[in-house]
């Protein structure tokens, strides 16, 4: 196992009687960019805090490489963290903010100065070192927070929703910078977010959590194309994947009212999943009626009702304006259909 890989073994966290994380086992590849994704309250921040050493594990082990770290203080784990609200020390200059960890670690002054400047350079803050956090913009503060994290040359870099306080444009820029920074310094990065776009764009691998359990842990494209459960299917992708209640009759799958959806062979009740962009508008197919449509410039999203009343989201390049009430027909691309068990939500 790589020296900076993280291994979680049956990690549990309980607050009193509430079990937040009921036994989680996973390996986070050394040098990889791993995103922990999930809705709020799923335990992702708790998990990150436990990796960082800010919260104790109730039971289980955490290993960095071959070292067991769950009993170590944060500073002895060799990891650094970037916080959502920057958490810069308001009374210190940016220079002292970045250099505080080195000062605590008693790094000699001259070396400290050099390392602070290198770190500031790498996030493009060189000229602002003598300002205070209150004199910087949100983006600059976030950079300072990143510089503070990398100045100690950590083997593990932790991010706790670091982009959620920035506006959309800045967020995009910072996302790119973080990806490049990760490639440059080669630390293991663990990034917590509830934003699926961040997860899709940044991650080598995404760990999708729900109620403290891993729902799926795979590459972003795998999560998108082959969701393990209906939860993943609806959580990843915007607009979300369509999930239709249907019945398999051996040679094909039909809606309750008998409309044939696809000729994929299946028998028994089933949840049929299809992404909005994998639905084609064809002259002759599954009939539906437009409920609502919105144009996003590059494409349009249409919400249509099927014969039995279930709604279908369709993403189409078609420039033609659609009016509510208009009827048309669609076809599901065959390779894109995913079938789930209606009871458990798991993939067939």
């Amino acid at each position: 196992m790589a020296d900076n890989a993280i291994a979680l073994n049956d990690v549990r966290k309980a607050y009193g009687d509430t079990l937040v994380i009921p036994g989680l086992t996973a390996e986070i590849g050394g040098g990889q960019f791993t995103v922990i994704l999930g809705p709020s309250g799923c335990g992702k921040s708790t998990l990150l805090n436990m990796i960082a050493g800010l919260e104790r594990v109730t039971s289980g082990t955490i290993r960095f490489g071959s070292r067991e770290v769950q009993e170590l203080a944060p500073k002895d784990r060799g990891c650094a963290m970037v916080f959502q609200n920057y958490a810069l020390y308001p009374h210190m200059t940016i220079r002292n903010n970045i250099g505080y960890a080195l000062k605590v670690a008693r790094v000699p002054k001259e070396e400290r100065r050099k390392r602070v400047e290198t770190a500031a350079e790498s996030v493009g803050l060189r000229g602002l070192l003598d300002r205070r956090p209150s004199e910087l913009s949100g983006g600059q503060r976030q950079r300072a927070a990143v510089a503070r994290a990398i100045v100690r040359e950590p083997s593990v870099l932790l991010f706790d929703e670091p982009l959620s306080n920035l506006d959309a444009k800045l967020r995009h820029g910072m996302r790119m910078e973080l990806a490049r920074l990760h490639d440059r310094i080669g630390a293991t990065s663990v990034f917590v977010t509830h934003d699926q776009v961040e997860a899709m764009t940044l991650a080598d691998k995404v760990m999708l959590l729900n109620n403290g359990e891993i729902v799926q842990y795979a590459a972003p494209s795998e999560l998108y194309e082959n969701p393990a459960t209906t939860f993943v299917a609806t959580f990843i992708g915007a607009p979300a994947m369509n999930l239709l209640g249907a019945d398999g009759e051996g040679a094909g799958i039909r809606l309750q009212d008998g409309t044939l959806l696809t000729t994929t062979p299946f028998r028994g009740p089933v949840t049929l999943g299809i992404r909005p962009e994998n639905i084609e508008i064809v002259p002759d197919g599954i009939p539906c009626r437009i409920v609502y449509s919105e144009s996003l410039g590059s494409h349009s999203v249409i919400v249509a009702a099927l014969a039995d009343g279930q709604e279908l989201r369709i993403a189409t390049q078609l420039g033609r304006r659609m009016t509510p009430g208009e009827t048309f027909s669609v076809r599901f691309m065959k390779g894109a259909i995913r079938l789930f068990d209606p009871a458990s939500g798991k993939r067939h």
Binding site: G53, L54, M81, Q84, A87, Y89, V104, A105, A149
Partner: peptide
């Protein structure tokens, strides 16, 4: 004060006492 401040100090390796003297006292 921002809730993450003591956590940031802990990540920087500051003991609670150091946090109190270096961060909290000046603030």
């Amino acid at each position: 004060l921002p809730k993450d401040l003591p956590r940031a100090a802990a990540m920087d390796g500051a003991s609670p006492f150091r946090f109190m003297i270096d961060i909290l006292l000046p603030l």
